[in-house]
C-alpha cells in the first residue's frame, strides 16, 4: 500500500534499497492489465492465440509492466513523488503462476532538482522480466 508518509529528498542516500515487492503473476492480472491499458493483442488475453505464437500461456503486456514499475517506486516514494521518466528494458516474459520480485536501489541524486534515480529489476523464475530506471522528484 502506498504510504501517506512521503519520502523526502533528505531521507535518501545513494545505495539505499527500496522495500522489495512481490507481484504474483495471474491470468487476471495479465488479461485485466492488458484491457485496462486498451491493449487487445490476443497473446495477452487468449491462451490459444498465445500458444499458437509458441508461448505456454498468455503473457504480460508492456503497459502493465510499466504500471507495476510505477507501483513499486510509488509505494516507496509515497504520493508526493513525481515521476519524470520511466525507462525499462524487457526480458523474460511474465506467465501465469510465476512471481515477479522487484528490487530497487538509489543510483543517482540531484539535489538541485530534488530528483533521484531508482535502478530496478523485476525478476521471475526465468530471469529478469524487466530492468530499468525511474527518475522521481521528491518533496
Amino acid at each position: 500500500m502506498t504510504s501517506m508518509k512521503t519520502t523526502r529528498f533528505e531521507d535518501v542516500s545513494l545505495g539505499d534499497q527500496l522495500p522489495a515487492l512481490d507481484i504474483p503473476v495471474t491470468v487476471a492480472l495479465i488479461t485485466g492489465g492488458a484491457i485496462a491499458t486498451r491493449d487487445y493483442f490476443p497473446g495477452h488475453h487468449d491462451k490459444d492465440a498465445a500458444q499458437s505464437l509458441g508461448s505456454p500461456h498468455v503473457f504480460m503486456n508492456i503497459l502493465t509492466t510499466s504500471a507495476l514499475v510505477e507501483r513499486f517506486v510509488e509505494q516507496w516514494s509515497g504520493p508526493q513523488g513525481r515521476f519524470r521518466d520511466l525507462r525499462i528494458r524487457l526480458g523474460a516474459p511474465n506467465y501465469p503462476g510465476d512471481c515477479m520480485q522487484f528490487q530497487g536501489e538509489i543510483t543517482a541524486l540531484d539535489a538541485s532538482s530534488r530528483t533521484v534515480e531508482v535502478t530496478l529489476r523485476g525478476k521471475n523464475s526465468m530471469g529478469n522480466h524487466v530492468t530499468g530506471t525511474v527518475a522521481v522528484t521528491l518533496p
Partner: peptide, 28 residues
C-alpha cells in the same frame, strides 16, 4: 487492476490538497 493505491489518482479530497487541486492520471 495494477494495485496502484496512490490517492492522488482516485481520492478527490486528497488530491485537492496537492499542487494539482484535483485528481490526475498515473504517469505510466
Amino acid at each position: 487492476v495494477m494495485g496502484v493505491d496512490n490517492p492522488l489518482y482516485t481520492d478527490a479530497a486528497y488530491a485537492a490538497t496537492t499542487e494539482f487541486g484535483d485528481i490526475v492520471a498515473p504517469p505510466a
